[in-house]
């Protein structure tokens, strides 16, 4: 059986500009942020991004790497509106296919099942059908004759997900309350890259956790990266909560300043060090104010 462990930059070496990239997690929850930061360090751009958007979308949009976004929303959860996503939209720099959440999930299901579309009772009557996104309808062939939105398959060239644990073969495990759509992203993509908090032996995955936590199968995974804190600054329960103080900094700092201080280094190690330094300063400042 093949060992799929690779480095963050090893993953990036397999990507190319112009790809359709799916990003797992949800809002500011369990986002594969270390992989996103690796994209930012590379020259890869012109991406079509498929995501339940959070700071993943904000970072890529601020850096001008997204040509087109497929999403039902973008939010930082504790901060409702994603500032860099907003700014990109408001300067007309971000084309979008804006889908309802159920349409989005059905689009992933269609792609995972190799179907061209799935019908859904959502979208009709709303403006998601009228935004030049090419959405079509389909009519039930049965007696009811009801018309539905035909959500096209959201097939992707590559998907990124971040999970709590994985083995070297690509079996991935979530230990938090919600799987989000990470297994669907992996199955709906031609290649899928899984980062994890900790790489463990296969037997260790189910030593203290039930079988149902094994969310992603190795047959849907191309590469595995061990990236402790790889979801930072989003939440990755139960390993760590969202870094709210740092998220506030992200949301309120001009992009150039934020990028220069935290994203200018040669690797993830430099990011972690810059974050640690900021936290030390922040704590000192808070102490001084008290």
């Amino acid at each position: 059986m093949g060992d799929k462990v690779m480095s963050l930059d090893g993953v990036i070496g397999r990507l190319r500009s112009g790809m359709t990239l799916g990003i797992g997690g949800w809002g500011s929850r369990r986002k594969p942020m270390a992989l996103i930061r690796a994209v930012l360090r590379s020259g890869i751009g012109d991406l079509t991004v498929v995501s339940c958007g959070g700071p993943d979308v904000g970072l890529l949009a601020a850096a001008g790497r997204i040509r087109h976004l497929v999403a039902p929303f973008a939010t930082l959860d504790s901060i409702p509106l994603e500032p860099h996503f907003r700014a990109a939209r408001e300067r007309g720099a971000l084309g979008m296919t804006e889908l309802d959440e159920a349409m989005f999930m059905w689009g992933l299901h269609a792609a995972a099942h190799r179907l061209p579309f799935l019908p859904v009772r959502a979208g009709l009557g709303s403006d998601v059908m009228r935004l030049g996104t090419g959405l079509r309808t389909v009519t039930s062939p049965y007696a009811d004759g009801e018309e539905f939105a035909a959500v096209p398959a959201l097939r992707m060239d590559a998907a990124f997900v971040h999970l709590n644990r994985a083995d070297r073969l690509g079996n991935g495990q979530y230990l938090g309350p919600d799987p989000y759509f990470d297994d669907l992203f992996c199955r709906a993509a031609d290649t899928a890259y899984l980062s994890c908090e900790r790489l463990v032996g296969t037997a260790e995955l189910t030593k203290d956790a039930p079988l149902q936590t094994l969310l992603v199968s190795r047959l849907d995974v191309t590469g595995v990266v061990e990236a402790p804190g790889g979801a930072h600054f989003t939440s990755c329960a139960p390993d760590h909560a969202r870094d709210e103080a740092f998220q506030r900094l992200y949301a309120t700092t001009p992009w150039d300043d934020f990028a220069a201080r935290f994203l200018g280094g040669a690797g993830e190690y430099d990011y972690r060090r810059a974050v640690r330094t900021w936290h030390e300063e922040h704590a000192r400042q808070q102490g001084a104010e008290r």
């Binding site: 007309g92 959440e101 403006d127």
Partner: peptide, 26 residues
């Protein structure tokens, strides 16, 4: 809840449609 102004280049981008379309029809 999506945006204020012209959708192609909103004056104010808000959340996005989220689940409002599916909620309201179901």
């Amino acid at each position: 809840i999506s945006c204020v102004g012209d959708w192609t280049r909103p004056a104010r981008q808000l959340l996005g449609v989220r689940g409002a379309p599916v909620n309201s029809l179901n």
